[in-house]
Nucleic acid binder design. Structure first.
Lengths: 137, 137
DNA sequence: TCCTACCTTGGACATTGTCTAAGTCAAGAA
DNA sequence: TTCTTGACTTAGACAATGTCCAAGGTAGGA
């Protein structure tokens, strides 16, 4: 994750304790926290960090392309630090668990020109839904 | 849409004026209103209809499979009455316009077994993102 | 060390959705 | 037709999530 901090400094980020702990919380694979969860985990390390700062920092990380915003359920958005490897999401309909998955092929290629209605289409997000092994038991 | 009302009666629905206007508002193709928009349009015909009833009715229509809930932006959910023809959505990143689209192939088939992690996968939702002709101009 | 533009904070506010208690009414029964 | 009853609707309080602002704090260059 210090790679991330280096990239951020390179982009002119002022490196504050608050931004550091938010970046640390988002370190790891298969991380899909809500803003509130990020705030709670960040507050474990830096108790006085405010909600506004967590929202600001997450928004900046998304703008910079370092983190992806995922909303699979219409509730709170989740923040996925795995932004540098294309992937889609598999969500359990019961417990809400999210897995990163890699379908074959390029979903963008499956949308024919006559189905694009003149749009400049640039991305395709796929959400697979099902029931995870724990919830099926 | 009277087809819909008939199906609902067949399922034991009590047919009230409120439910009728909500169903009427959702009549048509390429309809993707938010709950608030449905409420405003319903109130044009039945001014005293309450927000709670609109939410209740939309929730019931979703449970019955007559309407699909779409959340493309993490903001308000949208309600899509085109539930009986499989389709995906194409969203303009600038103005938020939504089009129903029909990609070729079955997106579910593109998720290999070893990428399912033991889930019983039952659906795939694809959101294509781009810029519509009006916004590109 | 100092300066200043950028950052953080607490809290008010906005949006979207849920819940409840009390009153109303659709539709079957008589 | 009228009656009855349980399902439906209502207003408004409440909850969850996110945004904004003015005031004060601080990272990092000079």
């Amino acid at each position: 994750m210090s790679d991330l901090l280096k990239r951020l400094r390179g982009r002119g980020w002022r490196l504050t304790a608050q931004r550091r702990v938010v970046a640390e919380v988002l370190d790891g694979d298969h991380v899909h926290y809500t803003a509130d969860e990020v705030h709670a985990l960040a507050a474990d390390r830096l108790p006085e960090i405010s909600r506004a700062t967590v929202y600001n920092t997450l928004g900046e990380l998304v703008s910079l392309g370092e983190v992806i915003e995922v909303s699979t359920d219409g509730r709170a958005k989740r923040y996925d630090p795995n932004a540098h490897h294309a992937h889609q999401h598999l969500v359990c309909a019961r417990c809400g668990t999210i897995r990163d998955v890699h379908p074959v092929g390029d979903p963008l290629a499956d949308l024919p020109a006559q189905e694009r209605f003149g749009f400049a289409v640039s991305a395709a997000e796929v959400t697979y839904r099902g029931v995870c092994p724990d919830c099926a038991a």
